[in-house]
Structure formats: C-alpha cells, structure tokens
Design a protein around this nucleic acid. Structure first.
Length: 588
DNA sequence: AATACAAGCGCG
DNA sequence: AAAGCGCGCTTGTATT
C-alpha cells in the first residue's frame, strides 16, 4: 500500500481475533484521513495479517474502494467477500457448499451492475431466491452485500470452511486472490481513465461525418448519403432507420432481403447497397461514438468506463456505461498518451486455444502454438491447408459449430488434437445433459434450471410432439455450446486475471517520476507513476512515463510468463504477446 | 408515459 | 461465406 493512509497503524484498529484477523473501523479511518465519508455507521472492513502483508477483507470492493482511492489510499491485497462467495457457492471443487448457499444475501449483484443482472436467474435455478434478491426480480432497488463487520467475519469463516472442504484448495485460493486483485484494479482503471485526445476524436468524426451540426440534425455526410440511398430506392420518403420500413422499401426496389443486416445486404447487386451500407456505418459511428458520447464519456481527457469484475458468468469482466467492451478500432487513435508519457499496448495472440492446449495437456496443440502464431503452427504441422481455415476450425471447435466451413473442419482438428478436442467435447456433453462444468481454477457454471429440465423431460414422454422433441434437442444443444465455451473462455479469463494481478504488483514497485512529467488529467494518484489504464479480455494498455516504457514492457512480458507458470506449472505452453510502445493505441 | 423486446453492430 | 461463444448500447416498435 502507498499513500497517506497506507500505514495500518493509522487506521483505527478495534479488535483482533485469535487467527490474526484485525478488525478495522473503516469509517473512522476515512474520517481521520479527511474529506471522504463512505457511511456513518458500523464497522466496514477486516484486515487479515499474513506473512505477505495485510490483506483487506471486505464485503464489496466496488462499494468501499472508490472512496479510499479518491483519498489517495491504494490497497495492495484484498479478499472481496461478494465475488468470492459467488465462486465458492457454485464451484464443483467445493464439497461442502451448503453453508454458503444458505446465505442468499451474499448473492447481491455488483453495485454498478444493471438491475436486470444475471444472478437472479442463478437464484431461481437454485430455489434460493428470497429477500436478498426479490427486489431485483421485481425491478426494484439493487441490494448491497451485507455491510456489518460481524456479517463479514462470519462470511469469511464460511468461505474458509468451504475452501477447507475443497478437493483442490490451492487452485481456488489462487482464483479468489486473482478475482479480488481484479476487483481492486477495476476501481483503479476507472479512476485512472484511458487518456483520450478530444481533438483526435473530433477529427475522426469530422472526416467521416462532416462538421458537428448545431441543432441535433444529421451531419452533412449522413444527409448526403441518405439522399443517395432514397434516390436509388426510388422512394424520396423512405425511412432508413426503421428496420421494418427499410425492409419494405428494399422489397419495392427489387431487393428481396430477409433482414437489413450488413452481411445479408452485401449479397445483393443493386445500386442502393453500397450507399446504404455506408449510411449505416456512419449512423453507427454517430449514434454510438459521436459527439454526444465524447461529451458524456471523455470530456475531461479521460475515458472512464465502469468495469464489472465477475460480471460475466464465465468470469470475464462486464462493463456498465460507456461501452468499454466496444471501443471501435476506428477510434483507437484517440487513445493517446499525455506529453512526456507513452503507452504500452499488449494483447495475447490466440489466448483461448493456448489455454485449451494447456488444460487438456495436449502437447501436439501446444507444439503448434510454440513460437508466435498458433494458426500458422497448425498449418505448418500439415493439419489444415490455410491459416484462415485453421482459425475458423479452431473457433468452431471452441464455440460448437456444426455447419458451414467451420463445422466441416472441426473433425480434422479432432483427429489431430484428440486431447484438446476431447476436453471441449466432454464439456459440451456435460452441458447438454444439464450438468455443471468447471474452469481450470475452479469456477463452475450453473446446472440446468428447472425450466430446462422440464423441457427435456417432456420430450421423453410418450405423448411428446415433434415440436417438443425439437425444442428439447435445441435447448440441449444450446446448453452444450455454452458449457463447451465456458471452460475455455473462463480459464482464459483466469489467465488474464493472473497476468493483470502480477503486472499490477510490478508496476507498483516502479519508482515514481518527477512532477513535471505529471499526467494531469488522472489526478495526483496516477500522475506520477506507470499505471494500467485499460483491460479488455486479453488486451491491456499501460500509461507510463516515457522514460519507463522499456521497464514496463519487460514487466508486461514477465507477468505473462508468470501467469502461465502459476496456472499450468511446467507444461510447455507459450503465451506470446503482441506488444508495442507507442504514443497512441492505433493498431499497426 | 413507462417499460420490454428485437434488430443490428461494435468488441473479445 | 456468414454458421458457432460471451458481452453493451442505441434505435424503433410493441406492450402495458
């Protein structure tokens, strides 16, 4: 920890338990530090003493950490009870989960999650929905995880007991630590923000759309294209923004498209197609990432999406607000380092198939993955002729494709890499039977819910109709594709969390720089040292003083290697990075 | 008037 | 060429 409040002696310690847990009054500590108050009652946090230093145990990182961070307090290690509860209560590695499952109050969704969040589904399936989530189902107020220190302590005990019952507690402990580190980082990423150049964004918009209209009318290029499209349709009044109306106009003009999606329209030869596709592209840019987006999300020179750790059932992060997961490539040049600073942009090449090779212990696939490009490796091994085919085949294997080019090539992979393909095929069978599957470190999917089982049961009765049987087959297939992908996507998310957590620690150890290089827009906390500023599944951006770029790049690579060893020990699998040091995040 | 849903497209 | 996983967001339309 660093910062004014980092010395545990300055926090008001209110008690100690026999096993080294220190009870801390977080509210008092904040009052002591100054301005920020997160609440007026009760005890908020416990700190567990370990040989590695203090690990904060609290109900919900998203609930408590922003205020601390705003006060300059950086927490090094944490245990997020809400996130860890979600993992442990469902993990098939835990043999005694009953005590955790009897605590639905801890199933509260993330503070920033939308009110229709997934946990409601989970609770219904388990038959445990009650006061803790009923408000959620009714679209009412979003409940918080319990906040009293007594609640936190008893939940911590339950989680320790669940861990003690686990068949492989080491993996789960690693997952819980990584998940909690991710929760800290998510708050820090929001606070730091992605350095954003307004003038670059504006110039992209003006080049594509024309100058910003004053009154909310469409910009010039959009109007011009709309005129061209209407002329080609022979319909001066055609509505281009309503799917059903546009479809009817297309039919009248002799384009028998069934939908107005881009890939289908591209099939037809007609003068309206090219301008219409161009129009749709411009409208997308305008509505999703136009001037209003810029004003709302990046006005102060930083783009601050809200990250939601554990927001996806597989363990990936979700986001809420700003569309962090959809930052279009077109706008990447607007991601631009401050003066005197630079960006280190890195992503993992083919993370998911590499993870699959390691999980399955598939040395043939791991061999193809050695070096840089896994798909080239598959071609070099003589398995499949072209890189493009190798890619669609591998994606098809991990997503459950059954038709088209992709489905046709999957059997080829099955022969060449029986262990890797056997793992995803087995996961698909488990899912299609209604079962739960589990990632490498122990995050499990839900089992099929009551509705799902009902559909399957109906198809087996003597009076079942063809429609009943088709419905059951389809829902079994849907579930199989979900669990097939779950094990791979979820383990990839674990690898990424381990990468992030390690890198976060390494960056904290780098020396701060002199104030004249300060990145002003991030505020004092992130203005003097290298920090992560963006994360998206398998990609990171570090904003760093230019003088430390090489050190940061080395740390990024080292963290990736350490994540590989942490998860997969000595199994020979590479995780090569595409890494560049640049002023902006534009690709290539 | 408020809310739910589908279509479409952006990202991995 | 357009199937097969996971998301979030905007728009228009249907529902209440």
């Amino acid at each position: 920890m660093t910062g004014a409040g980092s010395d545990p002696a300055r926090w008001r310690v209110v008690g100690r338990t026999a096993d080294g847990i220190v009870l801390v009054d977080l509210t008092a500590a904040l009052t002591e530090i100054g301005r920020v108050r997160v609440g007026d009652d009760g005890w908020r946090a416990v700190a567990s003493n370990s040989p590695h230093g203090v690990r904060w145990v609290w109900s919900d990182t998203a609930r408590w950490y922003p205020a601390l961070l705003a006060d300059g307090v950086v927490i090094a290690r944490a245990h997020d009870l809400r996130l860890c509860h979600a993992i442990l209560r469902a993990s098939t590695l835990v043999s005694a989960p009953a005590a955790l499952r009897a605590q639905p109050a801890w199933d509260a969704p993330a503070v920033n999650a939308p009110s229709t969040a997934a946990p409601a589904l989970f609770d219904l399936a388990e038959g445990l929905s009650d006061a803790g989530t009923s408000g959620l189902l009714g679209g009412g107020t979003v409940p918080y995880a319990p906040e009293s220190i007594d609640d936190a302590l008893s939940e911590l005990r339950r989680q320790e007991e669940a861990l003690a019952s686990a068949s492989d507690p080491g993996r789960l402990r690693l997952l819980l630590a990584a998940e909690s580190a991710g929760a800290l980082l998510a708050v820090e990423l929001h606070a730091a923000g992605v350095p954003w150049r307004r003038e670059v964004h504006e110039s992209i918009l003006e080049t594509a759309l024309g100058t910003r209209p004053r009154n909310g009318s469409p910009p010039r290029r959009v109007r011009e294209l709309a005129d061209v499209v209407r002329a080609a349709l022979g319909d001066p009044a055609a509505s281009l923004d309503s799917q059903p109306k546009l479809l009817r106009s297309l039919h009248r003009a002799g384009v028998p498209a069934r939908s107005t999606s881009r890939w289908e329209l591209a099939e037809y030869e007609h003068p309206v197609i090219a301008p219409l596709l161009a129009y749709k592209k411009l409208m997308r840019l305008l509505t999703a990432n136009g001037w209003s987006w810029l004003d709302e999300w990046a006005a102060d020179g930083r783009f601050r999406p809200v990250y939601v750790p554990g927001g996806v059932v597989t363990g990936r992060w979700a986001s809420s607000g700003g569309g962090a997961l959809q930052l279009p490539r077109q706008l990447r040049p607007a991601v631009h380092a401050d003066p005197g600073w630079t960006l280190v942009v890195a992503d993992v090449a083919q993370l998911e198939p590499r993870v699959l090779a390691a999980m399955a212990g598939d040395t043939a696939l791991a061999e193809a993955a050695r070096g840089h490009d896994l798909y080239d490796g598959i071609v070099a091994a003589g398995t499949i002729r072209t890189r493009a085919e190798a890619k669609v085949a591998m994606l098809g294997a991990m997503y459950g494709a059954t038709t088209g080019d992709s489905g046709r090539l999957v059997p080829v992979l099955r022969r060449a890499y029986p262990r890797a393909m056997g793992l995803v095929d087995a996961a698909a069978r488990t899912g299609a039977d209604g079962g739960a599957v589990t990632t490498w470190l122990g995050r499990s999917s839900a089992v099929g819910d009551a509705v799902w089982h009902e559909v399957q049961a109906r198809a087996g009765t003597p009076d079942a109709s063809d429609a009943d049987r088709a419905r059951a087959r389809r829902s079994a297939g849907d579930r199989g594709r979900f669990t097939r992908n779950f094990v791979v996507q979820g383990t990839a998310a674990e690898w990424a969390l381990a990468w992030l957590a390690g890198l976060r620690g390494e960056l904290a150890a780098l020396p701060a720089v002199t104030v004249k290089d300060a990145a002003q827009a991030s505020g004092p906390l992130f203005s003097r040292r290298a920090h992560l500023c963006f994360f998206l599944h398998d990609e990171i951006i570090v904003h760093t003083p230019a003088s430390q770029a090489e050190q940061v790049a080395a740390a990024v690579r080292r963290s990736a290697d350490r994540a590989a060893r942490l998860l997969f020990g000595g199994f020979p699998i590479d995780f090569p990075l595409d890494l560049r040091i640049a002023e902006d995040a534009a690709k290539g």
